[in-house]
Amino acid sequence: MAKAPTRTNRERTETTRLALIEAARALFVTKGYADTSTPDIAVAAGITRGALYHHFTDKRDLFRQVLLREAQAVTADIEAATPDQLTPRRALLDGSEAYLNAMRVPGRTRLLLIDGPAVLGLAEIMAMDDATSASSLREGLSRAGMGKGEVSLDALGRLLSAAFDRAALEIDAGADVGEVRAAMLWLLERALGAEKKR
């Protein structure tokens, strides 16, 4: 019988961190940040509280890592939907739809758009957003030539990002997905203007 390969310390560390992040995510979604304790998380992950504090400073630090993982997953979905061969316009529209789809993962909107700002503060959430999906949006706006020479690309990106976040909140609250998606794409199409003929 073949002997199972021995895991390295790094692999064990990553496995433990991932177990804590996944257990914490599930509890933060079902119970909320305030009603989730570190003992709850440790029990759900099958890990001691001491191990939790070995990997994370405190509950807030663990929450931050949960949110970062969620934000990175959204960005990965946007990037997967916008391969380089798409026209800048098509990439921006497809990336927008990918964002709305990615935010429909159960609990994600609550984590990133409701609990995140309340727990970590708006400045930290905006910095996290700037490093992930907002960065993808700015790149898409730049490639599509939106606002060039007329308005600040950063300001335009922040305003459109806020509109997308509001759309995600509307969908999460039970609004008709098709209607919200259609309205967001209509808004973006108008902002892009008429497609130039080649």
Rank of each mutant, 00 (worst) to 15 (best):
D40Q: 14
G116K: 10
A183P: 09
L160R: 05
M146C: 02
L160P: 00
L141Q: 00
V177I: 12
E189S: 04
R89M: 10
I21K: 11
A183Q: 15
K197W: 09
I171S: 10
H54S: 06
D40G: 14
R17K: 13
L67E: 00
L153K: 02
S135Q: 15
V43C: 02
T15I: 12
D58S: 14
G174N: 05
A24S: 04
A44D: 01
A167E: 01
K31V: 05
I21Q: 05
A26G: 03
A183H: 13
T132V: 11
G32D: 08
L120M: 12
V105I: 10
T132D: 05
H54N: 10
E97R: 14
R181V: 13
D154K: 04
Y33P: 01
T16N: 12
R89I: 11
D35F: 08
R25K: 14
T57N: 04
T36I: 13
L185V: 14
A144H: 05
T30K: 13
N9S: 07
A45E: 05
D61F: 05
S161Y: 05
F63G: 07
P5F: 14
R158L: 04
A191H: 02
D130M: 13
M126C: 05
L93G: 06
W186L: 13
F28T: 08
A173W: 08
